[in-house]
Amino acid sequence: MRNDELEAELEDLSSAEDFLDFFGIAYDSQVVFVNRLHILQRFHDYLEADKDGPTGDEGWMGYYSRHLTTAYQDFVASDARTEKVFKVFNDQNSKPAFVPLDTLLK
């Protein structure tokens, strides 16, 4: 399958479960339920980091499947807070916001 055709099919997928099912990747529904956005973002990050495309005889299906499998496995072995996929988890200088109670009552 050419990459153009594959990417056209991928445009119809909307959930992490859709992607995992499309690529035939077995998954624990509880892991996906808790981490679906993190898995998809990590998948995107892996694709962005690997601009070279498929290696050897891998093909585009294998290329996408490899990165999606790795993204999913990251959250099987860990959790969202540890993996820090989104910016909110990476803000080390952020402090809890303090709002005085009297300002809320005005």
Rank of each mutant, 00 (worst) to 15 (best):
Ser15Phe: 06
Ser15Ile: 01
Ala16Ser: 13
Ala16Phe: 11
Glu17Ile: 14
Glu17Asn: 04
Glu17Trp: 09
Glu17Asp: 08
Asp18Gly: 01
Asp18Tyr: 15
Asp18Ala: 07
Leu20Cys: 07
Leu20Lys: 00
Asp21Thr: 12
Asp21Leu: 09
Asp21Arg: 02
Asp21Met: 08
Phe23Thr: 05
Phe23Arg: 00
Phe23Trp: 02
Gly24Tyr: 12
Gly24Asp: 02
Gly24Ile: 11
Gly24Ala: 07
Ile25Glu: 10
Ile25Asn: 06
Ala26Met: 11
Tyr27Asp: 00
Tyr27Gln: 02
Asp28Gln: 04
Asp28Glu: 03
Asp28Asn: 10
Gln30Asn: 07
Gln30Asp: 08
Gln30Leu: 10
Gln30Val: 13
Gln30His: 09
Val31Leu: 02
Val32Glu: 00
Val32Met: 00
Val32Ala: 01
Val32Leu: 02
Val32Ser: 01
Phe33Tyr: 08
Phe33Asn: 06
Phe33Arg: 06
Val34Pro: 01
Val34Asn: 04
Val34Glu: 02
Asn35Trp: 01
Asn35Asp: 05
Asn35Cys: 11
Asn35Arg: 12
Arg36Val: 04
Leu37Ala: 03
Leu37Asp: 04
Leu37Ser: 04
His38Gln: 03
Ile39Asn: 02
Ile39Glu: 00
Ile39Lys: 06
Leu40Met: 10
Leu40Glu: 03
Gln41Gly: 06
Gln41Ile: 06
Arg42Glu: 11
Arg42Trp: 13
Phe43Gln: 00
Phe43Pro: 00
His44Trp: 08
His44Gly: 04
His44Tyr: 10
Leu47Phe: 10
Leu47Pro: 00
Ala49Pro: 07
Ala49Gln: 14
Asp50Lys: 13
Asp50Gln: 12
Lys51Asn: 08
Lys51Phe: 14
Asp52Phe: 15
Asp52Met: 13
Asp52Trp: 15
Gly53Leu: 14
Gly53Cys: 14
Pro54Gly: 08
Thr55Tyr: 13
Thr55Trp: 13
Thr55Ala: 12
Gly56Ser: 07
Gly56Asn: 09
Gly56Thr: 10
Asp57Ala: 12
Asp57Gln: 11
Glu58Arg: 08
Glu58His: 11
Glu58Asn: 07
Gly59Asp: 05
Trp60Val: 04
Met61Val: 14
Met61Pro: 05
Met61Thr: 14
Met61Asn: 10
